[in-house]
Amino acid sequence: MSLLRLENVTKRFGGLVAVDRVSLEIKKGEFLGIVGPNGSGKTTLFNVINGVFYPDEGRVFFEETDITRMPPYKRAPLGIARTFQIPRPFASATVRENVAVGAMFGFQAKTINVEQSLEIADKVIERIGLSSHGNKSAGVLTPVEKKLMEIARALAMKPKLLLMDEAMAGMHPGEIDNMVKFLREVAQEEEIAIVAMVEHIMRAVVNMAEKVIVLDYGEKIVDAPTREALSDPRVVDVYLGKGAKEENAEG
């Protein structure tokens, strides 16, 4: 049984096709990387998966239930969590309260109370290394801390599927390695499938994902095990090639 399945999903903005007939499948506990140049439709794909946008065509299944037109707030309790490319903390609330919100309305929403949510929040915050910031307003955190807080908030939801949009952008190589290690551990313990989109951080992709999907102009051009995918000439062309060119231009 697949955890998440997309069938021929298309999303347009006016004339622009942001996601073009993408099909994909993720199994329980799997680690999938999505790469693709700027504007290739990665974030839009996430938005379709968690219901921020409904697709124009195609269907989305979660645990074999059709959720194509289900509003986002009903998807979270099914076990779908995400982080945002640009962090979106609830700025006036404390870090602890932010993370507790995740627990409160996530997968355990029906059975959990405020006290328990706060306890979970404390544990997750501790684990991700934000303990000293627990009582600070989320708005005053540094960008990297905000990303960590978002990951904590998503994990507190006890998701089966975690969508991470550029969760590691802005981190140092050392921090990325730690993050990857942390995510692997948590995912294994809790059987979370993680879909991470990683733009320029190949390091993370290589170390993390079992499978990689490459998007280009909204189309899925590669879907293969990581090593294989990374040596695919189309990937080098579309993604690495372009990146390399940009770097040369900068230098």
């Binding site: 968690n50 219901g51 921020v52 509003p71 986002p72 707030y73 009903k74 998807r75 979270a76 309790p77 995400r82 945002f84 979106r88 903390p89 609830f90 700025a91 006036s92 609330a93 309260e97 507790a100 919100v101 995740g102 409160m104 309305f105 996530g106 929403a109 405020v114 949510s117 908030r153 939801m157």
Partner: peptide, 20 residues
């Protein structure tokens, strides 16, 4: 908690599972 979340960021609140 739900109201605080939606007051700060309604879209993010929805994604967190809140029926705003």
């Amino acid at each position: 908690y739900a109201l605080t979340a939606l007051r700060e960021d309604e879209d993010a609140a929805k994604v967190m599972g809140i029926n705003v």
